[in-house]
Simulated assay, not measured.
Amino acid sequence: MVDVNTIRSAAGTRAAAIDEGLRAHMNKVYGTMSIGMLITFAAAWAISGLAVTTDPSAAAAQIGTGKYLTSFGSALYMSPLKWVVMFAPLAFVFGLGAAMNRISAATAQTLFYAFAAVMGVSISSIFLVFTGYSIIQIFLVTSIAFAGLSLWGYTTKKDISGWGSFLIMGVIGLVVASIVNIFLGSPALVFAISA
């Protein structure tokens, strides 16, 4: 006859091994994503640093008070090359998606890091338009939201995929409210949308 305590301890050991494997996998995923985010930031910051100058004698175009585009910045943001830079991440995603089943894990990780760099080049113009404070603020809010939702999902083990339709309705509502506020210019509505 089978001892019930032996069965329970074997099931507990198996569950602990699964939890440990999941924890190791998630740590690797978070580590890879963190490195990817750092690569994206570094590429965006470096490209914007090469594209902008405060020296009017080295300027190809003026973009604001005391801010000028270098010849590199003018070629990147004002020529037809801007379309290549803008759509390169999308083309990268399509290409990576088509090749995903035929490449090794190491190649996929290398291509992910290359994608992160291409994405950084594509979004480098945010450093021309927005202040460093607002970029850092949005980065921190997004990181905290991601970490909080990830931690909540990991600890409670609840599936949050059912939130999708509700959240999509919320995004549509925010877009409509933002478009309406273009014409209203209401500071209270700006605050509500930000919240």
Rank of each mutant, 00 (worst) to 15 (best):
A98D: 01
T142E: 03
A61G: 02
F191E: 05
W83N: 06
T65K: 07
V29G: 06
T155N: 15
F94N: 07
T110F: 14
V180F: 00
V190S: 10
A15R: 14
P56H: 04
K28S: 10
V121C: 05
V171R: 02
F127K: 12
V29W: 14
L149W: 14
L90D: 06
L151R: 06
I179H: 01
L151H: 06
G162H: 01
I18P: 09
L96Y: 09
L184H: 07
V121W: 01
A24P: 03
S57V: 11
Y77G: 00
G132R: 07
T107L: 12
G95R: 12
Y113F: 15
V4M: 09
S178Y: 08
M1R: 12
V52K: 09
K158I: 09
L90N: 12
V93W: 00
D19P: 07
G31I: 04
S125H: 13
V29M: 15
P89T: 11
T142R: 00
M33V: 15
A147D: 03
G120M: 05
M119V: 11
P56K: 01
I136T: 14
I7R: 13
L128G: 03
S71R: 10
L149K: 03
L22T: 10
A192I: 15
I144W: 06
V118H: 08
G31E: 09
V2I: 11
S71N: 15
A24T: 11
S161L: 00
L151G: 05
K158W: 10
I126C: 05
Y154I: 13
S134E: 13
S143F: 02
I179T: 07
F130E: 14
A108T: 06
A43G: 07
F130V: 09
L128R: 02
F94Y: 10
D19Q: 14
N101I: 04
M86Q: 09
G49A: 13
M100R: 15
I18Y: 11
F94H: 06
P80F: 05
S122G: 03
V84K: 03
N5D: 14
A15M: 11
Y133P: 04
V121D: 02
K67Y: 03
V129P: 04
Y77S: 01
L184M: 10
N27H: 14
I39E: 11
L81K: 02
A59L: 02
V4D: 13
A44T: 12
A117F: 10
D159Y: 00
A177G: 05
K28C: 03
Y113Q: 04
G95C: 13
Q62T: 15
T54F: 01
G173K: 05
S34W: 12
A75Y: 01
S161T: 11
V171C: 06
A60V: 00
A42T: 10
L22M: 11
L189N: 12
I103Y: 07
L111Q: 06
I168K: 15
N101M: 07
G173T: 07
R23W: 06
M119L: 15
Q109Y: 00
M33C: 09
I47F: 05
G148E: 02
A91G: 14
S34K: 05
